[in-house]
Amino acid sequence: MSPEANFKLDAERPAVGALLRAARRSRNYTLQDLSTRANLSVGYLSQIERDIATPSLGSLNRLAAALSLDLGHFIPIPNARGLTTRAKDRDTIWVREGGMTYERLHGEFVGASFSAFLITLPAGFTTETDQHFGEEFVEVRAGRVQFTIDGQVYDLGVGDTLHFRSDLRHQAVNPHDEDAVLFWLGNGPTFQSRPNIAAEQPS
């Protein structure tokens, strides 16, 4: 996948950490309050607010739900593309430049039960440790990635796959000097254009 992103953050848009802190304080939530609502640790939330940690789209979705906000409050959300995505004009999304990038593959329709992305892990990048409802399937398309699932390490190369329950603690790391590209499929908390889907719901 090209390192050139089709979808870039507005340089004048506040960082995710500042947006999260402002939203939390406007509701008079403590970090512990938000931790309980989003099922994320206080320490991790503090790191996000200080822009030390870069949350995944799944964690941002959980934070948005905990604050009764749309995901678009934290990152610009591209318009839905319907049922088909063309390789030449897919949206590439990132939370912060230099972190993971997500190229959306799934369509948008009422009742969709999973999401699919091409995910690029930059050289030397380590994801957050996560644990949530659902299941995930990963195929390595380029590079190598080490996944830790419930304490067990899986070293994956091109063509290797991994399928696991998301309620097991999981983390991915790219310890190598080249980017890794993953095909990811899952039905846990991920990126969805909730306003567009809601608009299709019957009244």
Rank of each mutant, 00 (worst) to 15 (best):
G134E: 09
G111A: 03
L168V: 00
H176N: 03
A123W: 02
T161R: 11
A142P: 00
S166N: 11
W184M: 04
R141L: 13
L182N: 01
L162D: 08
T120K: 01
F125W: 13
I119P: 05
G82M: 10
M100D: 06
N174G: 07
A87Q: 08
P78L: 12
H132T: 13
D167G: 02
F125D: 01
H163S: 13
R104D: 05
D51T: 06
T84V: 15
L162V: 03
T126Q: 04
R81Y: 15
A172E: 01
D70C: 01
L60H: 09
G58L: 02
F137I: 04
I149C: 07
A116G: 14
R90C: 04
N79H: 14
L40I: 15
V42K: 12
L168T: 06
A65L: 00
N39G: 09
V110K: 04
E49F: 07
F164Y: 15
A142D: 12
A38I: 01
D179C: 06
V145T: 05
W184A: 00
R81K: 15
Q146G: 03
T85M: 09
A66R: 02
D89H: 08
D130W: 03
E103H: 08
L45T: 01
L121T: 03
H176G: 00
E97G: 09
A142V: 12
I52H: 09
F109L: 14
T85E: 14
R165Y: 05
E108Y: 13
D51R: 12
E128G: 15
V138M: 08
V110E: 15
I149A: 04
T92D: 03
V95N: 05
F137Q: 11
